[in-house]
Design a protein around this nucleic acid. Sequence first.
DNA 1: GCATCGGGTGAGCAAATGTCCACGCACAAA
DNA 2: TTTGTGCGTGGACATTTGCTCACCCGATGC
Lengths: 310, 310
Amino acid sequence: MTSVARLYYLDGLGQQEIAGMIGVSRSTVSRFLTAARERGIVRISVDPYDPRDAMLERRLGDRFKLRNAVVIRTLGRTAETVRRTVGYYASIAVAQRFQPGQTIGLAGGRTLYELIHAFAACDPPVRPRVVQLMGNIGPTTSAIDATELSRILASRLGGTFYTLNAPAFASDRRTRDVFIDHEHLRTVRKLFGALDMALVGIGSLDESAFVERDALTAADFARLRRAGAIGEICGRFYDRSGRECETDYRDRVISVELDELRRCQEVVGVTNGPRRARAVFAALKGRLVSSLVIDQQGAEALLAEGMNAG
Amino acid sequence: MTSVARLYYLDGLGQQEIAGMIGVSRSTVSRFLTAARERGIVRISVDPYDPRDAMLERRLGDRFKLRNAVVIRTLGRTAETVRRTVGYYASIAVAQRFQPGQTIGLAGGRTLYELIHAFAACDPPVRPRVVQLMGNIGPTTSAIDATELSRILASRLGGTFYTLNAPAFASDRRTRDVFIDHEHLRTVRKLFGALDMALVGIGSLDESAFVERDALTAADFARLRRAGAIGEICGRFYDRSGRECETDYRDRVISVELDELRRCQEVVGVTNGPRRARAVFAALKGRLVSSLVIDQQGAEALLAEGMNAG
DNA sequence: GCATCGGGTGAGCAAATGTCCACGCACAAA
DNA sequence: TTTGTGCGTGGACATTTGCTCACCCGATGC
């Protein structure tokens, strides 16, 4: 077996050639190689690479009094590739903070999608209660909706999934109340007050999944802007101080309340990209999130924002 | 680049996934990985494995007063796989003994075929004179004929190829003489006396490439057997003491003479398999070869033969 | 003696991989 | 500005590789 491994990895022969040399099928050679790697006969080492920028993490943590800051170095240039990289590496950092039996709230969003999908099945499983923090944005469930993400997270970690059987917005306040009074939702909303940790995305008004999916009417949008909205968490819009904007829209949302998040001991804001710096800054100012997962460029932009805004 | 290498080798991601994470094509990722291996960012180590059996080499060397003994451990069970393995590993040992500008004689045979084909192009090239030691067995040149092997060896080592433009046997002595008197052959035959090294196969009467390719008539075969032939080198048959068998056949062969081999300072016999033990033993006894390349089982059988024959 | 079970093996397939080629871009020279 | 040169990149192809399935062989139990 050692011989096979050397022929393959050091001499650069193909599996076919090796199979011919020792008189077995190529399949068997492939199996030998797998076994050799598992048994440590073959050792592959790569120069160390730290995907996290410790210095930026310290600066962010100090500047914004964060419980925990995770800054991921990114190689990609497009938003898509940055999200992937952040999700991949951040999942490791986030997974480390999970404790067995915790109640974890989870929102939706593209970056969270990447993060959740990068989770490997834990061993031993953490078995958390995973609570969906906001309703579905559209009638067609998308892979980045809180429902899907919560379901997957619970499944990966061997936990229980508490779904919020409702749309993210109702047409008016009355309808909203009917929804949230339903027994199912009451049960789940009770958990909103008992979260050990929450993972939420941070959206800006400019590039929001809500806008992209036509969840907001033009009128809603204009009103929110007039009310000073610059950021969004769990479908709730807030202004530059992190205060929720007072429009009628506020009473139609079905999701965790921002005050509930404020009371949660660890709310992890997951975001990326320099263009969301103002939204993130406001969320931090309003103590909406207590920890941050962000990409390098986003972190730099956020610190710059902090300089400008004092 | 380090990041890419870690994702691939340690995290086990596919090249496609990595490409998606950093926003380049899969081709580029493949190139990164190649570069990372070349630059030593990725290091692959495998437990040491010595394909040569040093103990058997020492025993063979002592018992038969060999200049050099190479015993290759083999995993395969069939003759074919044993030849491949012996050829592959022995090529390294043989290559180490080449000196620049040497004159090297080369016979044909299946094991030599594997050995020659395992040679990598040397750097710097040894540039030897490669002399074909025997004519072609059949009218159709086979890949294992001395012609082909010599041509390839010369090409790999950047040397000159001296071909023996003749069949391995003539129909009678007169014809043979006509052949070997040709100017081409005289030139090459002169080199037979000036060999620095010769690589020859050792065949047995039972399993000889000559018999398999119908080069010998049944009558020839019977006469040789009566004359005590048990082994063959370069188309010349010898008895249990390593003396060339005296049949008319002897005068029809076109190849290096056994006495010419005896005068060469290093004749490497390349063989494999336990069934040729008697032939090899006789060759050693008659000092036809001074070094040996053999597989482990063959070596053990040879030592056992030595016990029996004293 | 015969049937059944488990470990190991090879054929075949789908996916992953390496490599060639052509294109585009940047930089230098005319 | 245009032309030429060279590097880096992505697309496409052929090959290589991992994996599933069915099979065979030996061992065990009835």
